[in-house]
């Protein structure tokens, strides 16, 4: 690839130019952030993740909700605490609200940007394994926060790079989340790659762990097999039940009674829009976290 260095350089220059002015309100250009479609969820990416949810620096991601000012300017991104002054640092990163909505594999963040104004009092987090795609979403959030400074818009949305298939419990406490979105996940057609799918019987136990009883996992895909797969694996998991028809489809032509988030998910994700343009099918399935049964 003889053009690669030139391309990389352009990207670097572009990204640096964005950072020269924190008040820059221009939205980032997607073309500088495209990245190969698949990342291997099993490999040891040089990921940064907190040792445990208590070590997570949420205040940097949602500065408007930080409950105590930081003494020092934080470094970029997440920080893993060292042992010294653990208590002090934990205080420094305290935040007045917990994240309640997670968009897993958020891609370029279409769902996040549509949800943020609809749930202004709820913290929403996008989680994405691809570095450059994550950077795009972070850059766009920064720009939108600048544009909407007068109304404090988009302060409730953020995005981090994470491999959720391995590290979800590092970020969220038990029963912390109210909604999890799995929109147009990578299908992983190959037989031997099925464990790479973001939905499986065993992984669903982790979604159940971070969701509060009554919370909902939202799924949507354009691939019927994957839809069937996700249905099968959630339906046989005793911690989940499928929601009512109305929740997913609404009633009548105008879909009255359809869940607000299902509407957004059908129309606002990048993939959803692509499928719309191609006049493809969209399959929706949502699952409610049930209470755990009694334990002897």
């Amino acid at each position: 690839m003889p053009h690669a260095p030139a391309k990389r350089q352009k990207r670097e220059e572009y990204k640096n130019s964005l950072h020269t002015n924190e008040q820059n309100a221009a939205l980032p250009k997607k073309k500088f952030y495209r990245q190969r479609a698949h990342a291997n969820p099993f490999s040891d990416h040089s990921l940064t993740y907190p040792k445990s949810p208590a070590d997570m620096d949420w205040a940097t991601l949602y500065p408007a909700y930080a409950s105590r000012k930081k003494e020092q300017a934080p470094n970029e991104g997440l920080q893993i605490l060292n042992d010294n002054d653990e208590e002090e640092q934990r205080n420094a990163i305290a935040i007045s609200k917990d994240v309640k909505i997670a968009d897993i594999g958020c891609g370029f963040g279409g769902l996040l940007f549509a949800m943020a104004p609809k749930f202004p009092d709820t913290l929403i987090l996008g989680m994405e394994i691809r570095t450059s795609v994550t950077e795009y979403v972070q850059e766009k959030i920064r720009a939108l926060r600048v544009q909407n400074a007068s109304t404090n818009g988009y302060q409730n949305v953020s995005c981090i790079r994470a491999n959720t298939m391995k590290f979800l419990p590092n970020f969220f406490q038990k029963a912390q989340l109210a909604k999890i979105f799995l929109c147009f996940p990578d299908p992983h057609f190959k037989q031997r790659k099925h464990k790479a799918r973001i939905v499986s019987y065993t992984l669903n136990s982790e979604y159940a762990y971070v969701l509060r009883p009554g919370g909902v996992v939202y799924t949507i895909t354009d691939v019927r097999d994957l839809h069937e797969w996700m249905k099968e694996h959630f339906e046989k998991h005793p911690s989940f039940e499928r929601v009512e028809n109305e929740f997913e489809d609404g009633e009548g032509e105008d879909g009255t009674g359809m869940d607000e988030c299902v509407k957004i998910m059908r129309t606002e994700t990048e993939e959803g829009k692509k499928v719309e343009r191609n006049k493809g099918m969209k399959f929706v399935a949502c699952f409610r976290r049930v209470e755990d049964p009694a334990w002897p």
Partner: peptide, 30 residues
Amino acid sequence: PVVTEQPVDKDFTPSATVLTVHSGRNRRTL
């Protein structure tokens, strides 16, 4: 209780079509 490796069904038809499969890589896998 759980099918870990789905048996390869002889009548299996990938229901994704070239239309619905969006990435080039996915299309090749398909």
